[in-house]
Design a binder for these strands. Structure first.
Lengths: 161, 161
DNA sequence: TATTGTTATACTCTATAACTATA
DNA sequence: TATAGTTATAGAGTATAACAATA
């Protein structure tokens, strides 16, 4: 069996603190590393289109919703503060990728919508992104990919104590 | 079968872009979310001891090495810049958790070592951390935890194209 | 000349909170 | 009074590059 950096870390802990059962680090250490490594690879795809990861997420959220969303819906979905979201929307509006539409029902609010240019950009970036993800997952066969997704879903269920 | 936020996102994509096979998002979307959610839970444990995640990582790296390390070894292991590492070491030295030892072989260099206080702090924090990780992994049984670790290792092998 | 480590600078990103307009 | 969204401020953290000392 192949060993990786996390296996070596676990072996070190076994020597330094043999009283501790550090096996869960085999999961969380790899999740953390995978998030950094794969996140940076995805970022490279977004950067080719001039987007940051957060900007991609905003455009993608609007694209898959197939409808304009309020800033509040967006920052709750993306786990950002309202202030951070306003700043992001501003910049994307300036670049002609988003537009704010006044709301009829509540005049405090507005709806953020993709422009024609924004829709074209997110559609083409998304295609490159999905292709990239298929490449990144290719070390696993189709069954293994399914198993991994199911185990991760189960790991995160119920927000256990 | 239980569904989660990522399943709902995948269902949206299926409607909005049925031409794309977005299944890998079931893996990478969950890795990214897991890293944020679990990372924040681990951070809470570190904060109780007055440590940030990076500070914990520095002390833990020295603890499991069971030997002083150079700043270069530390920033390479932790994927930080040399400048960022210097700043971090400074603060931990100020707090009496680390000390710099002049090197005999190379007078440009030095070795960073845990102080008595640093060693005590990392040992007790580590125990709380490992306990916390066991709790976080408890949604999976022992076999599933092993399977998940193996699949993550395989996913990251060979840095494929 | 190259390398180790530190320092100084600037930048990115964010949360917080004050603020406005409206409900 | 509470809520939606924007703006202004400040802070955390980092990378970069210039620098000093030594190899």
């Amino acid at each position: 069996m192949m060993t990786d950096a996390v296996d070596r870390i676990l072996a070190q802990w076994e020597k330094a603190r043999p009283d501790l059962d550090c096996r869960p680090m085999g999961i969380f250490g790899r999740i953390s590393r995978a998030s950094r490594v794969f996140g940076s690879r995805m970022e490279q795809v977004f950067e080719k289109e001039g987007l940051s990861t957060v900007e991609f997420d905003i455009l993608a959220t609007l694209r898959r919703s197939q409808a304009p969303l309020t800033p509040t819906q967006l920052y709750q979905t993306l786990m950002l503060s309202s202030g951070a979201m306003s700043t992001r929307i501003d910049q994307l509006v300036k670049r002609g990728l988003l537009q704010r539409q006044a709301s009829d029902e509540d005049r405090r609010s507005n709806r953020v919508a993709l422009t024609e240019a924004g829709r074209h950009l997110i559609d083409s970036t998304l295609e490159a992104h999905v292709e990239n993800q298929h490449r990144m997952a290719s070390a696993l066969d189709s069954d293994e990919q399914h198993q991994l997704a199911c185990l991760l879903r189960k790991l995160m269920t119920d927000e256990q104590r």
